[in-house]
Amino acid sequence: MLAGVLSYPVALADMNECSRADYAVWETRSLRWLSGRYGDTLASVVRHEDESFPHLHYFIVPRLTSDRRLDLEAVHPGIAAREAAKRDGKSAKEANRDYCEAMRGLQDDFHAYVGLFHGHLREGPRRRRLSRGAYLAEKRNAKRRAETMTKAEGRLTELEAFKLAAAGADKVQHRAELLEREVLDLREENRTLTLEKADLVPKLEEAQGRMEGYRFDASQTAKAFAMLVALVTTGRDRCRTALLSMPRPRQVGKDVWQRLQGFLTGDDDDEGMPFERRRRSYERE
């Protein structure tokens, strides 16, 4: 496991509302830097306020190499530089120098990504042998530069938001055009269906009329057949009268209906026997 510390350079005792707000932004930037640099090997980040300066402890769990060892070179730039120097045949002193240079590069990267936006200087006054006045002047310049960079970053964020909004507007416009075309197509389809319906309505009404006629004819035929059966079995005159007064059902042929009429009026039937004699023969049987 690899562990590291990121420290905010304002003491807890000296922090006010403004510096606490700045610390919150610093912490967010630091977390983004850690996540971007270490990815899914970043296991944990813990804030500590148990010392004079607030700081973050972070822990890295490297992946395993092919021989089941922790791949420290992938997450520790100093170790990676030192091992590369050894493989190149450099001396221990040169390897250590490469190690220190790589670690300074790590600090430079953090300062460029986080510290610059908060007016933090990369090195203190003692290391650079600055007077207090020069150091304070440089801090003021760094603070103004940080404010400018923060404003620029805000403008960039606004610009990106505007671009996204513009892209969203273009998508909405494109979608609106598609929907408008769909509406036009649906209107045309509706017009076609309306015309087809206008053509089908008379045909449907005609078919319904024919169906009603068929139903009426079927009922008339059934009624005539029932009356005929009643007449043959009972011989009642009212059944004969009802049959004679009925119109010919369309389902009954003209010849059949004429022969039935002759049978009912007493004319000879198809076997030459009058109706009354035929009925009496039925009764005797």
Rank of each mutant, 00 (worst) to 15 (best):
L2I: 11
V5T: 15
P9Y: 10
A13H: 05
N16K: 02
A24W: 01
W26L: 11
W26V: 03
T28D: 14
R32H: 13
R37Q: 12
Y38N: 05
T41I: 04
R47F: 04
E49F: 01
E49T: 07
F53M: 07
I60F: 02
P62Y: 02
P62V: 03
S66D: 14
L70N: 09
A80H: 09
A84Y: 04
A84W: 07
A92E: 10
A95Y: 08
R97Y: 11
A102Y: 09
A102W: 08
R104I: 13
F110T: 09
H111T: 06
F117N: 06
G119Y: 05
H120T: 02
H120E: 13
G124Q: 03
G124V: 02
P125H: 03
R126P: 00
R132Y: 02
L136H: 05
A137E: 14
N141Y: 12
R145S: 15
T148V: 13
E153G: 03
R155E: 15
T157P: 00
L159V: 05
E160H: 08
A161K: 12
F162R: 14
F162V: 02
K163N: 10
A167V: 03
G168D: 15
D170Q: 12
D170G: 05
A176N: 10
R181D: 13
E182K: 13
L184G: 06
E189W: 08
L195Q: 11
L195N: 04
L195F: 01
K197E: 03
L200R: 07
V201P: 01
V201M: 03
P202T: 01
E205N: 07
E206M: 08
Q208G: 06
G209M: 13
R210K: 12
R210A: 11
M211C: 14
M211N: 11
Y214F: 13
Y214P: 01
F216Q: 14
S219P: 05
Q220V: 12
K223I: 11
A226G: 13
M227I: 11
M227Q: 14
M227T: 05
L231K: 11
T233F: 12
R236T: 01
R238H: 08
C239G: 00
A242S: 10
P247A: 09
P247C: 02
P249T: 09
R250S: 14
V252L: 12
Q261H: 06
G262P: 00
G266P: 07
D267F: 05
P274M: 02
E276S: 01
R280E: 13
